[in-house]
Amino acid sequence: MADVAVVRSPDIKKQSGFAFIAASCVAVLYLPMLVVIAYSFNSANNLAAKWHGFTTSWYNVVLANGEFYDSAILSVIVAVAATLISTVLATAAALGTTRGRPWRGQGSAYLTITTPLVVPEIVTGISLLSFFAFLSTVTGIDLGIWKLILAHSAFCIPFAYLPIRARLEGMDTTLDNAAADLYATPWKTFRYVTLPLLVPGISSGAALAFIVSFDDFTITQLIAGPGETTLPLYIWGRIRRTLTPELNAMCTLLLLISLAFIVLSFVLSHRRRA
């Protein structure tokens, strides 16, 4: 009886042309990145030159470059701060929109939180820029580096919110009932039951927020004050000077840092679930 179902179910992987389309998708996604990585080992002086020979010297150049370090450190500081702020706010928002009694406007709250995802980045950037300009003319306060951190936190919130909310929705609310039934106050229920089970959602939300902040260009370009050069801004600036494989090396390192954070959050969430 069981094999009847197996025979009848169509397998998309058996369709003709599937392998070709799959291979094309993978190529479009990863070939450009592979080229960047490969050419970071090119010994030619010019970015656009043909393959000349293998060298790791461009990495030595990058790692000896003080400006690269400064901008990388700034990027990490901004990304870590924005990740912390946006993840905490997103967790609170996710709890508010999934737990407790349903309230009027819950649906619109969900839209309000996630709409920034589809607002063009340039619009978000300009509006943040004018907001900060308005703030400093009215109050005379210049927030300095905090402008960048707050701007990043703002656009990271929906990215952090979605995985956390998804995890909360998948969680059995009778667990909260069970904790309350076993004498846990609402705070203890959160501390000992909800939060530990939410860790995978929070860590993937935080990882997304980190990546989105770490490689943001458009908004950062508009908000960043003098001297606040993040890594993407620095690389962009360098393109307008000399085009050497040093750029490829920088991009490869940027990719590595991003990957390291994704892997870290993946490992963290899977260790919890096991």
Binding site: T174, A178, A179, D181, L182, Y183, A184
Partner: peptide, 26 residues
């Protein structure tokens, strides 16, 4: 008053002993 839930509602991130001791801990 304590409840045995229909789907048990055991805390999946805890061991058997931690589950049983939860009420007393609280």
């Amino acid at each position: 008053i304590n409840t045995v839930f229909q789907n048990y509602a055991l805390f999946p991130h805890m061991t058997v002993a931690e589950n049983i001791g939860f009420g007393l801990k609280m």
